[in-house]
């Protein structure tokens, strides 16, 4: 029974995540259009709501071209790595507390791993391989440059990301993501306890997900398409999917670690029936993730792309010392008050 429940949870989460990815693309296109005083795609279906379906269908029927001199096994492997990594990160993210359905108590999290944060860090680290291998296997200078940039960028920002997470671990004294969320009940959100850590972590998430202002791996004006220059059809679709899935998991992790996850202040004491409490908690989580995603989309049209040296400067000379200082200060405060 346990296995069956887990399988159902995986299925539901995957379906929701993939539809969210498809609609995130639509939201991004519409919001970008609004920011640029345009209307955006509004033809397919009511107000353009079926646009993602059309996009996916188009990607399905596109020709799959592999460059003659490409390393074929690696060329095929790269998008698979990218998509597997970005989809499996969501497994440890708690999207609700517990729910009673048909007499079973179901924990709203696919896997409550006791090293949840390490799992997340490990997988985001693996994500580089997809991009780097794609860049290498395409046998194209632009792809290679994109892949190399991506490696350098993710390595430099992973440091500040990991170190800012240490602040969270110090405060909550657990590595388990659901315990971290439980710690943040009421208004004890970690963004209020760890504001500097939140900023460094959030900026690092932008860099990890290759979003503007840090989208150097695929900087269109200089690198054509970066690592996915030589990818077409469904393989390109997988990269695209992985990128947006990364965005969703990234913001889900930001929400879990710093914005209180599924916690809705004063909900437990309001005396609602348990079932509705769980539903509201899941809704709260979804709303928070949506808000963070919208923020990411708006930032894309606000901040211009960094130059490569500026990116490295920011990563090594600013973010890293700041996050280390944050850890030291947090440790001191905890030592003094306990």
């Amino acid at each position: 029974m346990e296995i069956l429940i887990s399988l159902i949870k995986i299925l539901v989460v995957m379906l929701v995540l993939l539809t969210c990815v498809a609609y995130l693309v639509l939201v991004e296109r519409r919001v970008s259009a609004f920011i640029q005083n345009r209307i955006g795609p509004n033809r397919v279906g009511y107000k353009g709501l079926l646009q993602p379906v059309a996009d996916v269908l188009k990607l399905f029927i596109k020709e799959d071209i592999v460059p003659k001199l490409a390393n074929k096994p690696l060329h095929r492997l790269a998008p698979i790595i990218a998509i597997v990594v970005s989809l499996s990160t969501i497994a440890v993210v708690p999207f609700g507390d517990k729910i009673n359905l048909f007499g079973y108590e179901i924990k709203l999290q696919i896997a409550s791993v006791n090293i949840g944060i390490l799992y997340v860090l490990a997988l985001t680290g693996l994500g580089v391989y997809g991009i780097a291998i794609a860049g290498w296997a395409s046998n194209n200078k632009y792809s290679l440059l994109g892949g190399l940039r991506s490696c350098a960028q993710i390595i430099s920002y992973e440091l500040s990301m990991g170190i800012s997470i240490i602040g969270v671990i110090l405060v909550t004294s657990t590595l388990q993501l659901d315990k971290i969320v439980e710690f943040q009940h009421g208004w004890r959100w970690l963004i209020l306890l760890q504001p500097i850590g939140f900023i460094t972590f959030f900026v690092a998430i932008f860099a990890e997900t290759n979003r503007l202002p840090f989208d150097l791996p695929e900087a269109e004006p200089e690198l054509v398409g970066g690592y996915h220059t030589e990818y077409t059809g469904l393989k390109f679709g997988l990269f695209f999917l992985a990128e947006y899935a990364n965005m969703i998991t990234g913001s889900a992790i930001v929400v879990t670690l710093y914005l209180g996850g599924w916690q809705f202040p004063y909900l437990q004491s309001s005396g609602l029936p348990e079932f509705w409490t769980s539903i509201i908690q899941v809704g709260t989580f979804a709303a928070k993730v949506g808000a963070v995603l919208l923020f990411m989309v708006i930032i894309r049209w606000t901040v211009p792309r960094f130059r490569y040296d500026q990116l490295m400067d920011l990563g090594w000379k600013f973010m890293l010392p700041l996050s280390i200082a944050n850890v030291i200060v947090t440790a001191f405060i905890i030592y003094l008050f306990e």
Partner: peptide, 10 residues
């Protein structure tokens, strides 16, 4: 950017 979102469209 947010103000631009609510301006008339072209």
């Amino acid at each position: 950017t947010i103000r631009q979102m609510f301006l008339p469209k072209f």
